[in-house]
Write a protein that binds this DNA or RNA. Structure first.
Length: 489
RNA sequence: GGCGCGAUAGCAAAUCGGUUAUGCAGUGGAUUGCAAAUCCAUUUAGCCCAGUUCGACUCUGGGUCGCGCCUCCA
């Protein structure tokens, strides 16, 4: 049985869906005013993995990941750029999709945008007001009366007293309690019409926390199974979501809260405010997207993950071992593969791959046990390596099939091994134009032919010279029983 | 200051109260014209101090260090 670490309980718990065989899951997505960084990549990949595992476990999953397309920072950035909110957000939504696609992240079933759900949000504010949990302040903002909600702090383990004790200097505000948070922000002079909506409390726009409560209940119901997000959202965002949803609907909001750990740089949280972030597209210039995905999945989702070139290089080496194992047997399976690809069939569609897993096999059972234990992907990946060893030891096609199928559950290893192994090089990517020519595939193949000829005539000095020259350009030659193949170092 | 998380070999990273994690790197061997890849063997562990136990890296208590949240943040 699947166990999930539930932040609400601070413990691993058996996962029991509300409706048999159905899982409804919501994850806090991006605020789209800039490119996604590696921290965002982690959320996307981690919950994509959760989504895949739930589906592989036989659940009918509805996965929602929202897009925040109205907020202070978006307004500010649009003004700086002298462009409309919509143009700005659409641009970064497109960019986000490109990044997610590259990382092998499946699209959620719904990607609601805050601006599309303003009526539902206003309805919620009205309900909260009716329940005595919201009030309009003198400045026009509608706030949530935190002290009226019993159980405020149950997710983050904070009490209102503790929060007040550690309070920082607060700017003058019209809130009844400094910890009250805004549900509806009144419109200010000079703001574009684009950021104003009519409401019975006057023109304005929604506070940040409100969108998730409104969209969650609209798309998944008032009570659903899993809610995820980065650990930094635990407080205040998720705490406030609970206050809003449970305050409005008078029933339990979410059963299992999941929070992923941070990506770090030099042992510090990667974040916009610290400025120590790397965007996904920046990293993808240097590293294969699957290496990045593997790098993320190789650590447990709740642990911190240190980013550095060394760690990415390490991940690349490890993934190379896996693909090398696959390559060694694809030689045997060549007739079938060639037939399939000659008919234009996509070689790497990962949907349906899970159907190929033989779950009775002992490796698959270890893999399943690991995944069922709060999504222990490092352990699951270790099983993949044991399987690779089995493949290499016995040239086992069955083991290779199983390896690819299990890895597919994690969204890994679905490409043609050769394509991965001969993909863009890290080490020599920025060398001279001459090296670019040397690394051209036609040139490589010609050199391989020349070397084979040299070997035939026992001219080993020439054969070695060619090997050395290619190696200096980052190309490794491998003589196998099936002939000479090459890969990038 | 309040609350919480973590500390595993050269690097990264899991499990587990007693039996090989795993990947990279290192060493020895097999294989190879030479290599690479691969296989076999192997060296490096569990922050410190107490306690529980026949036995603790694993449980309990204390300490030290690191990190996070308490303000926008994935």
């Amino acid at each position: 049985m699947l166990k999930i670490y539930n932040t609400l309980a601070r413990d691993k718990q058996d996962f029991k869906p509300i409706e048999p065989n159905k899982v409804r899951m919501y994850v806090c997505g991006m605020t789209v005013y800039d490119y996604c960084h590696l921290g965002h990549a982690r959320v996307m990949v981690v919950f994509d993995m959760v989504y895949r595992w739930l589906k592989a476990s036989g659940y009918d999953v509805t996965y929602v990941r929202n897009i925040t397309d109205i907020d202070d920072k978006i307004i500010k950035r649009a003004a700086e750029n002298k462009e409309s909110i919509h143009t700005l957000t659409q641009r970064f939504i497109d960019a986000m999709h490109e990044d997610a696609d590259a990382l092998g992240v499946q699209r959620p079933d719904h990607e609601p945008r805050a601006t599309q759900f303003v009526p539902q949000m206003l309805e919620m504010v009205a309900q909260l007001e009716k329940n005595g949990l919201a009030y309009q302040a003198a400045d026009g903002d509608v706030n949530y009366a935190v002290r009226k909600f019993e159980g405020y702090g149950k997710l983050s383990g904070k009490s209102l007293e503790d929060l007040r004790a550690g309070e920082r200097v607060e700017v003058a505000s019209d809130k009844n309690d400094p910890l009250d948070f805004v549900l509806w922000k009144h419109a200010k002079d000079g703001e574009a019409d684009e950021v104003k909506w009519d409401s019975k409390w006057g023109k304005g726009r929604p506070g940040w926390h409100l969108e998730c409560s409104a969209m969650g209940s609209e798309l998944l119901g008032k009570h659903f199974d899993i809610h995820g997000g980065g650990a930094d959202l635990q407080f205040p965002h998720h705490e406030n979501e609970i206050a809003q949803s449970e305050g409005a609907h008078q029933c339990q909001y979410v059963n299992y809260w999941m929070h992923n750990g941070f990506v770090r740089v030099d042992n510090e949280k990667m974040s916009k405010s610290l400025g120590n972030f790397f965007t996904i597209r920046e990293v993808l210039k240097k590293y294969d997207a699957e290496v990045v995905r593997f790098f993320i999945l190789r650590a447990h989702y709740r642990s911190p993950l240190n980013y550095s070139d060394q760690h990415l290089d390490d991940a690349k080496g490890a993934l190379t071992r896996l693909y090398t194992a696959l390559k060694s047997t694809s030689v045997r399976a060549e007739p079938v593969e060639a037939h399939e690809s000659s008919q234009g069939r996509s070689p790497s569609t990962d949907s349906g791959r899970t159907g190929l897993v033989d779950w009775n096999d002992s490796y698959a059972q270890r893999f399943k046990a690991a995944m069922d234990d709060d999504f222990n992907t490092p352990e699951a990946v270790a099983v993949l390596f044991d399987l690779a060893n089995e493949v290499n030891r016995n040239q086992s096609v069955e083991a290779a099939t199983q390896l690819k199928a299990l890895a597919g559950v994690l969204g890994l290893l679905q490409r043609d091994p050769q394509a991965f192994l001969q993909g863009k090089s890290v080490a020599v990517v920025s060398s001279s134009a001459e090296a670019e020519i040397v690394r051209g595939e036609e040139y490589i193949n010609a050199q391989i032919e020349a070397r084979i000829a040299a070997k035939k005539s026992k001219n080993f000095a020439e054969a070695d010279r060619i090997r050395k020259e290619l190696l200096e350009a980052g190309i490794v030659l491998e003589d196998t029983a099936a002939g000479t193949t090459w890969r990038r170092a």
